[in-house]
Write a protein that binds this DNA or RNA. Structure first.
Lengths: 145, 145
DNA sequence: ATAATTAAAGACAAAATTACCCTTAATTAT
DNA sequence: ATAATTAAGGGTAATTTTGTCTTTAATTAT
């Protein structure tokens, strides 16, 4: 469904929203370990999420790390996809046709349409905070228990 | 959503179902041109669809090419995904967690679940024939009009 | 039989994605 | 001030996906 990059971005964002605060920043190492992702690659993705403080914030140096503000927690989950430039993925034709449209629909167009809209809805209605609250972090990730 | 390979496979299958018959086989060149895909890569994909005659059939030599039997047209669209080994893609966790389940759901699990089921439904209820009939082939592909 | 045509098969190449490493910059604690 | 810590940034490597090319095998028309 999503690229690895997007999966890691979503997992990292949710994890950071669950565990971080301005006074308790999370290091790259902790995040990557918690969400089971390769640290170096995760670093690149966290950079994207940090650009212009679009989703999360970061501070360098001792006791530095990544965190998210209460305000940013109110952002729609869609912002994560935007940061990864994958926001338009749900607009695309399921058969990959460039000019699929209401006027010139592909054979799956009208059946896929309501599903597509629900997928968009999913990322539009949920805030980062809401997702973070959905599950106890103890059994969310690190799921080797 | 899907890989290029899967997109081409679905488009090719639908096109072949629309235009071919045992007496009117379609060449690789015609198919690739019609569905706007790279010929050599499409050849590989058609081979997968032809393996064990799982979806389409092929005949070599003059007036040879690809076609689909009336019987195969009654197959579920899911068979195309199976041939590409992408049949399990809808079973996967949207966040990429290996052990996401009802007992140990990821934060998006229960919201994604009904959408996932509709996606599976889409490929289970539609036969190849039904999809092929959905749109007039003249304005399906070659959509540069 | 022979030549022409078409898919099958295998090797290879290009591009994109994923992953890693090293240096630099910023920040903090001492 | 200095040393330690941590993310940022750049370059590179590995892997996967996508795409190409050439040869072989099968079939047909002549």
């Amino acid at each position: 469904m999503f690229s690895k990059a997007t999966e890691y971005a979503l997992r990292a964002t949710i994890y950071i929203a669950q565990k971080s605060s301005i006074t308790n920043k999370l290091s790259l190492a902790e995040i990557a370990n918690a969400i089971d992702s390769p640290p170096s690659f995760t670093a690149k993705i966290l950079q994207l999420l940090t650009k212009d403080n679009c989703v999360i914030n970061s501070v360098r140096g001792p006791n530095g790390g990544f965190y998210i503000t209460d305000k940013a927690k109110q952002l729609q989950l869609r912002k994560v996809l935007e940061a990864l430039n994958e926001n338009d993925m749900f607009d695309k034709c399921i058969l990959g046709l460039k000019k699929c449209s209401e006027n010139k629909p592909c054979p799956m167009h009208f059946q896929y349409k309501p599903i597509k809209q629900q997928l968009i809805h999913l990322f539009h209605v949920n805030t980062i905070q809401q997702l973070a609250e959905k599950t106890d972090h103890r059994n969310l990730f690190n799921n080797d228990i």
